[in-house]
């Protein structure tokens, strides 16, 4: 039994290695990668999925301006419904080539995301190994804190 598991693990490592070396997936315009394990074979399949955002997308009245600047919103670090649109499932900020924001907005939004994470307002968008509940954090970090957006320094 143990040897079978080892073989499977080796197989997976090999496939991952191949995957990286020839980069099968990112140039093929994929949205989601699924891995299914059947006894001795590992099936990696990718397919295009909808982001689910199309019906709720705000229309940008000034297409030359970035979406955040064009919306004219004064976004605070407590607006988690807006900030969660700019992060991955592990709470990490999406790069500028993905978000399509201007340099200033990208900087400001990433600072706001960091503030929201530190305040524990997005506990479900965190790395897998983190303690989801902010009350379980170490020392002074477990207590409630808020931030002043005027302290964000952007040129």
């Amino acid at each position: 039994m143990n040897t079978i598991f080892k073989q499977i693990r080796n197989l997976r490592l090999n496939i991952n290695f191949q995957n990286k070396s020839i980069s099968l997936f990112s140039p093929l315009r994929l949205k989601e990668i699924n891995e299914t394990q059947n006894k001795n074979e590992l099936i990696i399949s990718g397919h295009i999925v909808n982001s689910g955002r199309e019906p709720y997308l705000l229309k940008n009245p000034h297409p030359t301006v970035c979406p955040v600047c064009a919306s004219g919103l004064d976004i605070k670090h407590t607006d988690v419904l807006i900030l969660s649109q700019f992060v991955r499932t592990d709470g990490c900020m999406l790069p500028r080539r993905t978000t399509g924001l201007c340099r200033r907005s990208q900087k400001r939004i990433s600072t706001l995301v960091a503030m929201a994470q530190k305040s524990g307002l997005m506990p479900n968008l965190t790395p897998a190994n983190s303690k989801k509940d902010p009350k379980k954090r170490y020392g002074w970090k477990k207590y409630n804190k808020y931030f002043d957006e005027s302290t964000i320094k952007i040129r």
Binding site: R29, R53, L57, L81
Partner: peptide
């Protein structure tokens, strides 16, 4: 509520969901 909140940006076609 999260899904139906107005979205500022859409993810590009070549973005890989994680």
């Amino acid at each position: 509520e999260i899904q139906e909140f107005p979205k500022l940006i859409d993810l590009p076609k070549n973005h890989i969901l994680r």
